[in-house]
Write a protein that binds this DNA or RNA. Structure first.
Length: 414
DNA sequence: ACTCAAATCTACA
DNA sequence: CTAACGTGTAGATTTGAGT
């Protein structure tokens, strides 16, 4: 039996949401002028995160440095991002979407899939229903969305990417040859720059070229797994279900680009400690422990280095994570100036599962007491005085604030 | 030759 | 003229050490 899937995508999400706030305050609508959400062009962390349609007409692209965008359009309005606002708008958007569908999957902050299969008695006309959802969002929340309609997630998502803004598109299987196959391979979901280069190098330029090629040829170019998946996508095949429950996180990571190069260990250690504290706190909130710690850094030539270690026992202690992160960093850093440093925790274990097994084993019980003692020691030493620690470390004052905002957001979800 | 872990690469919003 | 370039997460692929 055919499924019926909607994909709903907020048009220029961050910029639209910022515009809604401004319009409410009687300020000009950023959507009608060349504008973007982006960083400070004088700092090196400034890239374009979202852009208005007029900005797009100047050739400004998401991900490019703000300084470059300014050269393309000197009048470009640049607004810094505000995640607290985005979370609120996202929540309101998803609430409306969810009210229409038996099953909704949150795909990102501004995208959802709805599984509308079996709703034909309530919603006999899918296109009309899509317009209804889109118009309700525009009327109640003040921003526009695109809705893509098809029989699977891939096709629905491709459809929502057609002409913007404020549009409903279908991409049913019989429309694939006319609507999807003429598109460049790069437009296919999960097909990025590296794969594009390999395909066009072999003369495969459109999605239709891919679909008409032998699956084996695509696999030879892109690897077995990716080749299989992307060839199926090119043919419009995707059996993945719309999942209401988000997958459990497989890791937690944090990384920070600095305005000034890092050139000494003394500069690194407080940053590393704060980053360990941030990721460990996030992990503890999800009641997880990790058995793998890794540090990453980026040199001025944009080359990344990472170094990781496996722990004998899973941990969620900031101090233990920090000790490992510090060792990993010292082991791998040769002293080259750095622009970015990051910490990641992976190979997560369930905290509750771990605790159960601990109770059954005397030796482990002993160890657990020691862990608790260590934790108390850490609490005594550092307390919950995040602000004090933040001030030690953080010349730009940004890391801790962002982390607190994120934790707050996670709280609101629950 | 196999396997596990580590390191690197790719992709996406 | 070129180069410019954030953050968080996931998964695949490649590399390397040990057996």
């Amino acid at each position: 039996m055919n499924r019926l899937i909607f994909h709903i995508d907020v048009n220029s999400a961050f910029l639209s949401w910022e515009s809604v706030r401004r319009v409410k305050q009687g300020l000009p609508d950023l959507r009608n002028v060349p504008a973007c959400i982006g960083g400070d062009p004088r700092k090196r962390t400034g890239i374009v995160v979202a852009k208005s349609i007029p900005a797009k007409k100047y050739g400004i692209q998401t991900g490019e440095p703000v300084a470059m965008a300014l050269r393309k359009c000197p009048d470009l309005v640049i607004v810094k991002s505000d995640f607290e606002l985005y979370i609120k708008c996202s929540r309101a958007f998803k609430e409306i979407c969810a009210s229409y569908a038996p099953v909704m999957e949150s795909f990102s902050i501004d995208e959802v899939f709805l599984d509308m299969t079996g709703t034909s008695l309530i919603y006999p006309d899918p296109i009309k229903t899509a317009h209804e959802i889109k118009d309700k969002i525009r009327k109640e929340l003040g921003f526009t969305v695109n809705v893509g309609i098809s029989t699977n997630k891939l096709l629905a998502k491709m459809a929502s990417d057609f002409e913007k803004p404020d549009k409903v598109h279908t991409l049913f299987p019989d429309e694939i040859p006319t609507k999807m196959w003429p598109l460049p391979v790069r437009d296919l979901l999960f097909l990025g720059k590296a794969s594009e280069k390999k395909l066009t190098g072999a003369g495969i330029c459109t999605i239709g070229d891919m679909a008409h090629a032998k699956e084996r040829e695509i696999q030879a170019l892109l690897g077995n797994k990716a080749g299989h998946q992307l060839w199926q996508y090119a043919c419009g095949i995707d059996d993945s279900p719309v999942r209401a429950q988000p997958e459990e996180a497989k890791g937690f990571s944090v990384e920070t680009t600095f305005n000034d190069d890092i050139v000494s260990v003394e500069q690194v250690l407080p940053i590393l400690l704060e980053q360990c504290d941030i990721v460990a706190t996030r992990m503890r909130r999800k009641e997880k422990k990790c058995t793998s710690v890794s540090v990453t850094f980026r040199t001025l030539d944009f080359r990344n280095k990472s170094h990781q270690t496996t722990l004998a026992n899973a941990t969620d202690l900031t101090d233990e994570i920090y000790k490992n992160a510090k060792r990993l960093f010292v082991e791998s850093w040769k002293g080259e100036p750095l622009r970015l440093i990051g910490v990641a925790l992976t190979n997560l274990k369930d905290e509750s599962f771990e605790q159960l097994s601990l109770f059954e084993d005397n030796e482990k019980k002993e160890r657990r007491r020691k862990l608790d003692a260590t934790m108390d020691e850490i609490r005594r030493k550092y307390g919950n005085d995040k602000i004090k620690r933040a001030s030690i470390m953080n010349s730009n004052g940004g890391i801790a604030r962002k982390a607190r905002a994120q934790i707050k957001n996670e709280d609101e979800k629950e």
